[in-house]
Design a protein around this nucleic acid. Structure first.
Lengths: 98, 98
DNA sequence: TTCGTATATGAACACATGTTCATACCTTTG
DNA sequence: CAAAGGTATGAACATGTGTTCATATACGAA
């Protein structure tokens, strides 16, 4: 039995949403710190504020993160904890990046 | 400790390479059948020959599949078995596909 | 209210990716 | 050798994604 078309599409959708170094970094940091502000993530990832904000809103829109205002800050949180395992799964994979 | 930039890039690279319903289907079928010809995969996935061939060459190029000629057929094989686990990881994830 | 800090937004652009189509290349068979 | 089946290739195009920049918004402090 194969996975249904729907399931494959959902999986592909999620994979596309996280398939970026910065977004993977965000996921990693949010697993370790539960919740972080945009500025903290800017520091941690080294990604520029505006760009990171785009990444974050996108991940939030797609349902992978949640955001909560706290004064002038916004606290982002990882909604789907299993996502960190994805990286673990493929860490040992070989590939040709050239 | 966070993952190094290199590791994040590699992970993102692999995720991008598999983040497509057809390619995920190929991975699933190749886990279940060890090796399959292009035509068999055309049947199983419902993807058109030429398009599937593009997907396959690409995955091979990136090092996720291997290919072996056998007469007029080409047998594709999953090189990185762990890839099927990625799908398992995110199967239960919620997301907003709208 | 005015200022400074934190975050978001939208347009514009560059670049990557998915798809189609026509056709080429091999191999086997007659 | 010709024909047929299986697979690959390349151009062309449409679409999606990542990035930058300028600017907007929201909030807290003075």
């Amino acid at each position: 039995m194969s996975l249904s078309k729907k399931k494959l599409e959902k999986a592909a959708f999620i994979l596309r949403t996280i398939a970026h170094p910065t977004r993977l970094a965000v996921i990693e940091w949010l697993q370790q710190h539960d919740q972080l502000t945009v500025n903290q993530l800017v520091e941690l990832t080294g990604c520029e504020q505006s760009l990171l904000s785009h990444h974050l809103s996108n991940m939030k829109l797609k349902g992978l993160l949640t955001a909560k205002k706290s004064g002038t800050n916004v606290l982002y949180k990882l909604k789907e904890k299993q996502l960190t395992q994805v990286v673990r799964c493929i860490e040992k994979c070989d590939c040709n990046m050239s």
